[in-house]
């Protein structure tokens, strides 16, 4: 694959206090690919994503060593961490609707980035809500509180929000746990389309979702990168590692 490298992770170690959650992980993410990240609970998938946009900083006792470069710049050296976070859209597994209206939730990040024009904002909000397959359900009540939506709708609202600042990299952390299968499929179609403009990291507990969407898949196990290869290889009868085969086929977990 000769697409340029967007994210370069080298020997990333992350410790919460004295417990290490990531034991030296190295990989690259190329432009315009969907990288699936699979692994059992506690593998460190969420922690890995939180290192990318430095939201790990919010955990006071987390210590990160090694290097994570986004577009060639080490994230710990960037001056404008807010700009970095705007470049990376992040969808958390538990939706956190900000206590604002649906519209304001989606318009939040663009406003923070300095977008003021009303018509542009409205168009942007509509586009993001459509991409998150939420527009039809909420178009008549954009100004009601986002926290009044159902769980699955809130999850899609966070997806719309993550798209709202037009990120170049999109991290989805188990985005579909609260979303019904039909809507999940609609969002997956959108993700496939987004791949043309956005680089996507898809953390998922549904291995089949990685199989459907990901170009390459990374198998993380107890804070260790076991295998990273083209998705066909990971899900084939003969991945390089036995553990991969067993996890993917539900024999270990």
């Amino acid at each position: 694959m000769n697409a340029p490298v967007r994210i370069e992770v080298r020997d990333l170690r992350l410790a919460y206090g004295t417990r290490e959650a990531l034991h030296g992980v190295s990989f690259d993410v190329h432009a315009h690919e969907i990288l699936g990240i699979i692994g059992p609970a506690q593998a460190g998938k969420t922690s890995l994503l939180r290192c990318l946009n430095r939201t790990i900083d919010f955990t006071a006792d987390a210590r990160m060593t090694g290097s994570v470069k986004v577009d060639g710049v080490d994230v710990r050296q960037v001056k404008d961490v807010f700009g970095l976070r705007r470049k990376i859209g992040m969808v958390a597994p538990l939706p956190v609707g900000l206590p604002l209206s649906i519209y304001d939730n989606v318009a939040f990040a663009p406003r923070c980035a300095g977008l003021r024009r009303r018509d542009e904002l409205e168009a942007l909000v509509e586009r993001c809500l459509r991409q998150a397959a939420l527009w039809d359900e909420v178009k008549d009540r954009l100004h009601t509180l986002g926290t009044r939506l159902s769980g699955g709708q809130q999850q899609r609202l966070t997806i719309a929000r993550a798209l709202s600042h037009q990120p170049e990299i999109l991290c989805l952390d188990e985005f579909s746990i609260a979303i019904d299968p039909v809507t999940t499929m609609r969002i997956e179609e959108v993700l496939k389309e987004l791949r043309r403009t956005v680089t996507i990291l898809l953390v998922t507990n549904l291995t089949q979702q990685a199989r459907r969407l990901a170009d390459r898949t990374l198998f993380l196990w107890k804070g260790e990168l076991v295998e990273l290869d083209r998705t066909e290889v990971i899900f084939s009868e003969h991945p390089r590692e036995r553990r991969t085969y067993e996890y993917v086929n539900g024999m270990v977990g």
Binding site: T55, R86, F108, S164
Partner: peptide
Amino acid sequence: PDSYREAGLALGAT
């Protein structure tokens, strides 16, 4: 809740 703060900051808010 702190989750609001994290969500806001993760969206690039100062």
